[in-house]
Computed example of a mutant assay.
Amino acid sequence: MSESESVTGAGPSGTGPRTPDELLAHLDGLGLGYALHRHPPLFTVEDSKALRGELSGGHCKNLFLRDRKGRMWLVVALEDRQIDLKQLGAALGGARLSFGSPDRLMKYLGVIPGAVSPYALFNDVDRELTVVLDKEMLTFDPLNYHPLSNDMTIAVSPDSLLAFLRNLGYEPDILDFATVA
């Protein structure tokens, strides 16, 4: 990020990131059900596996990626899915992918590393990211994600996740990661 780029965070008119309470109120307003679970902060898939207990359903990892041209993606896949960035880039049209910086993550999604999820797209008010979902992930019900904070998890149906994304104006690319090995 250049020095001239602001890092004020995402949100309406650069007002800063929206909060988990605002996100949950948005989901309630849309009639999209969820089960909320509070827990100690989780920063990695390994943390999640160790501390989630009996939380059922699909557990996912979320990759905030960019290419050299500044295009950005949020890739959401099952937590144990092996992802080769070179092969994924080829599947996404030849992009040379790398991980976005924590500053860029805060600027566009309003979250810290460890709190990334498709629900962070609530803060991408200019719709600058492309969303890629793991096809197999969508066979799990419920799916578990952090709602803008890594000390909470919401369990949602795949239909609820897709309805949330579409309400925000995203039509996610659904990729069969089994073919991008």
Rank of each mutant, 00 (worst) to 15 (best):
Y34M: 15
Y34T: 05
Y34N: 14
A35H: 12
A35V: 13
H37T: 13
R38Y: 12
R38F: 07
R38L: 13
H39W: 03
P41A: 11
T44R: 10
T44C: 02
V45E: 04
E46V: 05
E46A: 09
D47L: 04
S48M: 15
S48W: 01
A50S: 10
L51M: 00
L51N: 12
L51Q: 06
R52G: 15
R52E: 06
R52C: 04
G53Y: 07
L55Y: 09
L55F: 14
H59A: 05
C60A: 10
K61N: 11
K61A: 08
N62V: 02
F64T: 10
L65S: 07
L65P: 02
R66K: 12
R66C: 05
D67S: 13
D67A: 01
R68Q: 14
K69A: 11
K69C: 08
G70P: 05
G70C: 09
G70M: 06
R71N: 13
M72L: 14
W73D: 06
W73I: 00
L74D: 14
L74A: 02
V75E: 00
V75F: 07
V76C: 07
V76H: 01
V76Q: 03
A77I: 03
A77S: 12
A77R: 08
L78Y: 08
L78S: 02
E79G: 10
E79P: 09
R81V: 07
R81A: 03
R81K: 07
R81I: 00
Q82L: 05
I83G: 06
D84Q: 02
D84L: 04
D84R: 03
K86E: 08
Q87Y: 08
L88G: 09
L88C: 14
G89L: 09
A90K: 09
A90P: 01
L92D: 00
L92P: 10
L92M: 04
G94F: 06
G94L: 10
G94C: 14
G94P: 01
G94W: 03
G94N: 13
A95C: 12
S98P: 06
G100H: 07
G100C: 06
S101A: 15
S101K: 04
D103T: 10
R104N: 04
L105C: 13
L105M: 10
M106P: 01
M106A: 12
M106V: 12
M106Y: 14
M106E: 11
K107G: 00
V111G: 05
I112Q: 07
G114E: 12
A115T: 03
A115Y: 12
A115W: 04
A115R: 12
V116I: 06
P118G: 09
A120Y: 07
L121E: 00
L121H: 00
L121N: 08
L121D: 06
F122G: 15
N123L: 11
N123M: 06
D124A: 15
V125T: 10
V125G: 15
D126N: 05
R127G: 03
R127S: 13
E128P: 00
L129C: 07
